[in-house]
């Protein structure tokens, strides 16, 4: 990797200061995406701002109608959390399906959603569960957060502090992993939330998005049969070595069906 200056600030204010002073600085959370990218010399940050010494980013708490997970909480800790397992088991299962055991021991929720990798799992949960992203500046609704390929609503000097997941009535996640990398070729979160039925798709498009056709169909009848007639438009979907857009379009239906079936539909 290229050379950079390393910082390990102890407060969010210090993070802001460093970011403000260095245009080319990047935030280091778990590093599961950033470090491999830097090793390939595909990124050249001038400074790395390591969040690991900042208190208060690694908590999981039950706030009654939601659970709030700090940006630096590792995937393994979400997967193993009693709070998460009780309130939103689908979220714990999703976390447990990310990467491999060692990736889950390092990777963080904040890092995952800040990057908005089209193939990562968490975006499906954030969007599907109608979560709220708390940053050092504001709160952003999930529907307003994912903007495109590696693109989010986060502004310069803004970083994810925590994510608030409202407790759904029920939710399930089904994933078709890339056999080589184990990232999501297609992942679908189906959730019945206070704000209605939500179906969020990751892996298939430039970023996570809601599958409104499926939501509409399931709204009429929450059953796998309701999905039978739906054919997803492949036009804007990802197309790569592992899956054509046509195949991805098909897999969205299959994964949605599996999630629905898990929920008794």
């Amino acid at each position: 990797m290229y050379e950079f200056n390393y910082h390990r600030p102890t407060s969010l204010e210090d993070v802001s200061e460093i970011l403000a002073a260095n245009d080319e600085a990047k935030i280091l959370a778990g590093g599961m995406t950033l470090l491999p990218t830097m090793k390939m010399r595909l990124a050249q940050p001038s400074d790395l701002v390591d969040l690991s010494a900042i208190d208060g980013l690694s908590d999981i708490s039950d706030t009654g109608d939601a659970i709030e997970i700090g940006a630096m909480v590792r995937h393994a800790d979400v997967a193993g959390s009693d709070i998460v397992q009780n309130a939103i088991p689908a979220l714990a299962e999703l976390a447990n399906s990310i990467g491999d055991a060692q990736v889950r021991n390092r990777g963080t929720l904040g890092g995952s959603i800040a990057n908005s990798d089209p193939a990562s799992d968490y975006p499906a949960a954030v969007l599907g569960l109608d979560a709220v992203i708390k940053t050092n500046k504001r709160e952003i609704a999930a529907d307003d957060y994912f903007k495109g390929l590696f693109e989010t609503a986060l502004e310069a000097n803004e970083l994810v502090v925590s994510v608030k997941f409202p407790k759904p009535k029920k939710a399930a996640y089904a994933k078709f992993p890339n056999p080589a990398s184990r990232y999501a070729v297609v992942g679908v979160m189906v959730a019945e939330t206070d704000s209605g039925l939500r179906v969020a798709v990751t892996g298939a498009g430039a970023c996570a998005y809601r599958a409104t056709e499926i939501e509409a169909a399931l709204g009429k009848s929450f059953s796998t049969d309701a999905l039978a007639g739906i054919s997803m438009d492949a036009a804007d979907l990802n197309d790569d070595l592992h899956a054509s857009s046509e195949y991805r379009a098909h897999l969205i239906g299959v994964m949605a069906g599996r999630a629905v079936s898990t929920l008794g539909g």
Binding site: N178, P179, A180, S181, Y183, L241, H242
Partner: peptide, 21 residues
């Protein structure tokens, strides 16, 4: 699982363990 894939211009598409399964 395994396949080494080149595109028409001779670029190796399956050039890492992320893509070569």
């Amino acid at each position: 699982y395994e396949q080494c894939v080149y595109d028409d211009s001779g670029q190796l598409l399956s050039g890492s363990m992320m893509d070569y399964c």
